[in-house]
């Protein structure tokens, strides 16, 4: 409360010399300016940061503890087993891990070229009166709740794919394992496309920001050397490479964890199939689906272990992303 009062030294007599020096050291560490308010402020900030760390550690610890039944029952085999059968109490994670990664990669495959295209157009080519509303629309897309995307997926996208797009792929590429069979109901393809639509605004918005801070001198230099618009854009993209990699990883992170929209269109079938027309399943989706009504302890425990795996998958992706960004920066 006495924030404008100068610091008064602590009464010395009450403490031993060791304590005094320790207290003084702590005080110096908390407030290099020698101000009480600053010390409190700094302690608050530090506590916030530590709190975040505690939350993450507790999250992992609690999930680990709650999945001990399933870890004891299946061990590492949980990661490689393809069987998920609540009736027989046999649980394996592989189809879900595959579905999560496959749908996310499919989403990136569609979304990254699209996002880069939109971002380059907005920063390099579009006149201001077009760029502004388009930017606004892109940001609007990011704000749509995922359940709305899911409903749209069921009622518009899935029938459209089934009637208009899938037959084209079937007749031209039906020989390859990726497009074998026929598309009914939900599928990996539908899930991937929904995810792509959901992450495109995120990637676009970040890439646009990254490109807009690339120095104008770079563009002018490229143009002065006689580069075409295409070549200039390549120079700009190369300059923003680290930021673009970061944007893609953020998009991937959203895709991996997305639950509601995916479970509504992916078909929810725990089987590994190369064909994008077959139904698939993701970790987030099975958690949302089965956790509420999981009545046996082992079922519940296996679902928690799936959650733990999802957490580690996310950590791995983020770690890989850091390495990627660093390696790009080095060059």
């Amino acid at each position: 409360m006495n924030d404008s009062q100068p610091i008064t030294p602590t009464p010395v007599a009450a403490y031993s010399p060791g304590t005094i020096s320790r207290v003084a050291a702590l005080r110096r560490r908390l407030a290099p300016t020698g101000n009480t308010g600053d010390a409190v402020f700094r302690a608050l900030l530090g506590a916030s940061a530590v709190l975040l760390l505690v939350v993450v550690v507790m999250l992992i610890a609690v999930m680990w503890w709650n999945s001990r039944l399933s870890i004891a029952a299946f061990g590492w085999g949980f990661l490689t087993s393809r069987e998920w059968n609540p009736g027989r109490e046999i649980y394996g994670a592989l189809p879900y891990v595959y579905g999560t990664l496959a749908s996310s990669l499919l989403a990136l495959l569609i979304s990254v070229p699209l996002s880069l295209g939109v971002a380059v157009f907005l920063t390099e080519q579009a006149p201001r009166r077009i760029a502004r509303p388009v930017t606004f629309l892109v940001e609007l897309l990011a704000a749509i709740p995922s359940v709305v995307y899911g409903l749209w997926g069921i009622f518009v996208l899935a029938p459209f794919l089934r009637e208009n797009i899938a037959p084209i792929f079937s007749t031209t590429l039906g020989w390859s394992p990726f497009f074998s069979g026929s598309l009914r109901g939900g599928s990996l393809l539908t899930g991937g496309i929904i995810l792509a639509i959901m992450i495109t605004p995120i990637i676009t918005a970040i890439v646009r920001d990254v490109l807009s801070v690339v120095p104008v001198a770079q563009r002018e230099a490229a143009l002065a050397l006689g580069a075409t618009r295409w070549e200039t854009s390549r120079v700009v993209l190369a300059n923003g490479a680290a930021g673009i990699a970061g944007a893609i990883i953020l998009g991937l992170g959203r895709a991996v964890g997305e639950t509601m929209a995916v479970t509504m269109v992916i078909g929810n079938r725990a089987e590994i199939s190369l064909s994008v027309f077959d139904p698939s399943y993701s970790i987030a989706a099975v958690l949302a689906n089965e956790f509420r009504e999981a009545t046996t302890d082992l079922h519940r425990s296996s679902l928690v272990e799936l959650g733990l795996i999802l957490l580690f998958v996310t950590i791995l992706i983020n770690g890989a992303a850091r390495l990627l960004v660093w390696s790009v920066k080095e060059k």
Binding site: P86, G87, R88, G186, R269, A270, Y281, E290, E293, A294
Partner: peptide, 15 residues
Amino acid sequence: GRGTSVKWATGVGGK
């Protein structure tokens, strides 16, 4: 078998 979630032999799942 019987249960609130089972391993389905065929088909797609809706939430």
